[in-house]
Design a protein around this nucleic acid. Structure first.
Lengths: 145, 145
DNA sequence: CACATTTAGTATGTATACTTATTATATACT
DNA sequence: AGTATATAATAAGTATACATACTAAATGTG
């Protein structure tokens, strides 16, 4: 007979499930706190938080997003009034993305919420186990940066 | 000044990165071996591998897919000639999904490849570390099933 | 049996994620 | 300078992922 792989024991499947759980917890908590941002949007906003006027490509690089994906993410942040896009004088192909005042306020308000929610993602684990998992995940990333 | 969270230390971000790495390795290996299936499609195919004539809802439940998503996945498997959809006599809302001969052959050929590739996803880790990571991921899943 | 509630599957809409191609602009090199 | 190459952003196409709503059919209950 066909010997079926037990997906539930394979890294690929477990990682996918964990990612599901992670985004699910993120969405629930955000909604509960009255915010309307995805984890992806938050990551971009947070990266832009220094006010350096990064361009899209740099943001994408820092958080390992696809160049083609980041455009839509920034667009949605712009529509929500959280960032502005200004043509870059030094490179006319690029735009400098900056937080609006509202964006800065949102980010400040969001940070403690996001920090707290990270714990909920791994609420089944003890602190020791969480630390161990984080360490292993960092090591497992081929291009951890 | 604004104290930016270091995303790189947060579970949510690390899990996302790991998921990226996982699907990337999967795609590369599949392509290298001459197959044209996503990890999601493989998971569905593998679940159907027993030939029990499962319906979509059951497949979705077993691998934790969204009910709305599984439809498209099965459709693509059908288009590739790997599965068939037969109306269920006992429940006229449902369809029984079965592997075609080609589907069975593909699955048999795929299983060792997928098994081998799982190791590459975590190639940065030692065997001990891999085992530890798997154990922690299973435990971290709130509804591990 | 009649009615309320579930459930299977589909449809619609939004948001990633990534591939390939295209345009405009920079940069490197001869 | 002139050309080849690389890069920023967008566009188009495919594939998840999930929320919500809808249809048809099944099931539970009075």
């Amino acid at each position: 007979m066909m010997k079926k792989l037990n997906l539930l024991e394979l890294p690929g499947h477990l990682i996918r499930r964990l990612q599901q759980q992670s985004t699910s917890v993120f969405q629930e908590r955000m909604k509960a706190e009255g915010f309307d941002l995805t984890s992806v949007q938050f990551a971009a906003l947070n990266t832009l938080g220094k006010g350096e006027g990064l361009d899209q490509a740099t943001v994408a690089k820092r958080i390992a997003y696809d160049r083609a994906t980041i455009g839509g993410v920034i667009k949605r942040l712009e529509q929500k009034g959280l960032v502005t896009r200004t043509p870059d004088d030094e490179d006319r192909r690029a735009f400098k993305i900056n937080l609006t005042e509202q964006g800065k306020d949102q980010l400040t308000a969001l940070q403690p919420v996001v920090l707290a929610l990270q714990n909920d993602i791994l609420s089944e684990l003890s602190d020791t186990e969480k630390a161990m998992l984080l360490k292993l995940m960092v090591k497992a990333l081929k291009s951890a940066g």
